[in-house]
Design a binder for these strands. Structure first.
Length: 424
RNA sequence: GUGAGUGUAGCCUAGUGGUUUAAGGCGUCAGGUUGUGGCCCUGGAGAUCGAGGGUUCAAAUCCCUCCACUCACCCCA
């Protein structure tokens, strides 16, 4: 037997309501904020990812799905959403549109990782990006959007953490200070942190081990090393968020995994701690587009993991609308009845009523049983008697009442009934 | 990539070497008189006991390998 490849999963009909819910809420949110949808390919030139994330990030070093196509091109499945958006921004000359360009996306992302709850090899991200404008107002807008998105989904008990990691002119000073500090503590660091010292010093700050955390507590803070511009930017972002009543906490240990971030970084997670707890995160990336060979253009954005959102919706018991069943089922008896049923079904569908028909030559009993399990509200019954006098029987499955109605004009009768009883 | 746990029909579970030709519940399908659902009753279908190999007279049950899932680390959304 075949099974879905490791770390991938089928999204079954019974789970689709979560996905519809999130798609609808995200589209509504983006409409409110004036963000337009963009879809980029599931695979890209491999170098799009390797050039924009210096080595040191696992996503590029060991988690990418890389393959060579039959023309010899080195391609990679989309490992991350922002770089492709920036590529599209350059490729389609978005720099010539009014800035900022506000875009959003929702689609699959691929990383070769060891699967566990909230982490799979194919997962889905919803993200927003505001490109071409460095105003701190946009940082605040993006963060507000991220926050409002989760509220609109009905999630609660969330914490928003904020930090600034400076820009290419001030960050080197900070990293030097960090390295200096850590060099005094090197012997007390865990093996992972020993590696981080050389490869990715910022990550020293968010090591989970208690011993390392203790050391991190005394570490220099990035916000103390910001240049004048970065400092002013960070203060503005915080002021805007305060004005907007977005509850945030500055976390000096917050750094992001992707190397292209500058200045603002943020993360949202449930206050209830769990394994893979971060459900959304983002930040500013003012150097990314120039790294791709374009005119320097700033950007800021966020991404949410849809599977992680669903996990939290389920944990918090948020009420998600069920996908509605068909409005009407047509049960039929006899060969003539079957013909009449598919004819009527087709006619009703053309008027916008959703209809399923029974198949085969089943007993009326089993057809009604089926209607019951499908939770269909109305059943039309067509038998030999009904064909004879050109009528149908309409049964309301909630009340159990039924009546004989003329076949003529049945669609308007149905529509009236569907409206009055609010049956799906 | 590292460490630990789990794997019996679509789902949940019983069975931990010998009346097991693997049991029960949910679900599914069909019946309970002639054309009527939800409750109840009866019955049917559905499992090479995750896969492969080994030990044994005998394996779902013990051993090995692989696969998958779960948890933690790592990493990240």
């Amino acid at each position: 037997m075949y099974q879905a490849p490791r770390g991938t999963t089928d999204i079954l009909p019974s789970e689709q309501r979560y996905w519809n819910y999130i798609r609808e809420k995200s589209a509504a949110l983006c409409h409110l904020y004036g963000y337009q949808r963009i879809d980029t390919p599931v695979f890209e030139d491999m170098h799009l990812f390797t050039r924009t994330n210096a080595s040191g990030t696992d996503i590029v070093d060991k988690e990418m799905y890389v393959f060579t196509d039959m023309g010899g091109q080195q391609l990679a499945l989309k490992a991350e959403g922002t770089a492709p958006i920036c590529r599209a921004y350059l490729e389609h000359g978005f720099a010539n549109s009014p800035q900022p360009v506000r875009l959003y996306y929702l689609g699959p992302t691929f990383r070769y990782e060891r699967p566990q709850a909230g982490r799979s090899r194919q997962h889905h991200q919803f993200g927003c990006e505001a490109l071409g404008d460095a105003a701190p107002l946009l940082d605040a807008e993006i963060i507000e959007m991220a926050w409002q998105f989760l509220l609109s989904l009905g999630l609660s008990d969330l914490s928003l953490q904020l930090n600034s990691i400076g820009c290419k002119s001030c960050r080197p000073n900070y990293i030097a200070a960090l390295k200096l500090y850590y060099s005094d503590h090197a012997s007390h660091l865990c093996p992972d942190c020993q590696v981080r010292m050389v490869k990715n010093p910022l990550r020293l700050l968010d090591c989970k081990r208690p011993a390392c955390q203790k050391i991190a507590e005394g570490a220099p803070k990035s916000t103390d090393y910001l240049c004048a511009d970065c400092g002013a930017h960070f203060r503005s972002v915080q002021q805007y968020l305060e004005h907007l009543d977005i509850p945030f906490r500055v976390n000096h240990h917050l750094v992001r995994g992707l190397d292209y971030y500058t200045r603002t970084v943020f993360e949202i997670q449930p206050t209830e701690e769990g394994g893979q707890s971060t459900i959304g995160a983002g930040g500013r990336y003012d150097d990314l587009i120039s790294q791709l060979g374009g005119q320097p253009s700033p950007g800021v954005g966020f991404a949410f993991g849809i599977e992680r959102i669903i996990l939290n919706l389920q944990r918090q018991g948020v009420d998600i609308p069920h996908t509605p069943p068909p409005q009407v089922m047509i049960a039929h008896l006899g060969q003539q009845g079957k013909l009449a049923a598919i004819t009527l079904a087709s006619r009703l569908r053309r008027t916008g009523i959703s209809v399923v028909t029974a198949t085969g030559s089943k007993s009326l009993k089993s057809q009604l049983r089926h209607a019951n399990t499908l939770m269909v509200g109305l059943v039309i019954i067509i038998g030999t008697q009904e064909i004879k006098d050109e009528s149908i029987i309409l049964r309301d499955m909630r009340s159990g009442e039924q009546e004989r109605l003329p076949l003529e004009g049945i669609d308007s009768a149905l529509r009236a009934r569907l409206q009055s009883s609010k049956l799906y």
